[in-house]
């Protein structure tokens, strides 16, 4: 029984000569597969360039917007301080006016 099995296995696994042109065909298919996996066809080669350009443009736009926003914020802060300064000065002017107006009555009362 085991001798039969061994004989069958030997027959099944015996060395066989490849058909003519087999090596050339395998080589050709391998080359073709590598080309397909490793690089895009000519008509799609713009995609990574466009993606890189988009990322770069987005980064530049983001940086520009942030710089603009920062400049705008500092300008707004400066304006705010200026507004508070002017408001304080005019309230002081009003206060001094009220003090001035109340002074004669204080003098008479003393």
């Amino acid at each position: 029984m085991s001798a039969d099995l061994e004989k069958q296995l030997r027959a099944a696994l015996r060395a066989v000569e490849p058909p003519a042109g087999f090596a050339a065909r395998v080589s050709a298919r391998t080359q073709h597969g590598r080309w397909r996996r490793g690089w895009l066809p000519m008509q799609q080669r713009w995609v990574p360039t466009a993606l890189a350009a988009s990322v770069l443009a987005a980064l530049l736009l983001g940086y520009g917007w942030q710089t603009h926003r920062e400049r705008q914020g500092l300008q707004a802060r400066q304006q705010l301080i200026e507004a508070l300064r002017v408001t304080g000065q005019k309230l002081d002017l009003a206060y001094r006016g009220v003090q001035e107006a109340s002074r004669p009555s204080d003098d008479t009362g003393a």
């Binding site: 926003r69 705008q72 914020g73 707004a76 304006q79 705010l80 507004a83 508070l84």
Partner: peptide
């Protein structure tokens, strides 16, 4: 000339540039 026009969004923006660690900025 002093001309200041700050709407709510610009006031909010200015507030973000006020340093809370400085007493005068915190008061503002």
């Amino acid at each position: 000339t002093v001309s200041v026009s700050l709407d709510s969004s610009l006031i909010g923006l200015a507030a973000r540039f006020l340093d809370p660690d400085k007493p005068e900025d915190a008061a503002a």
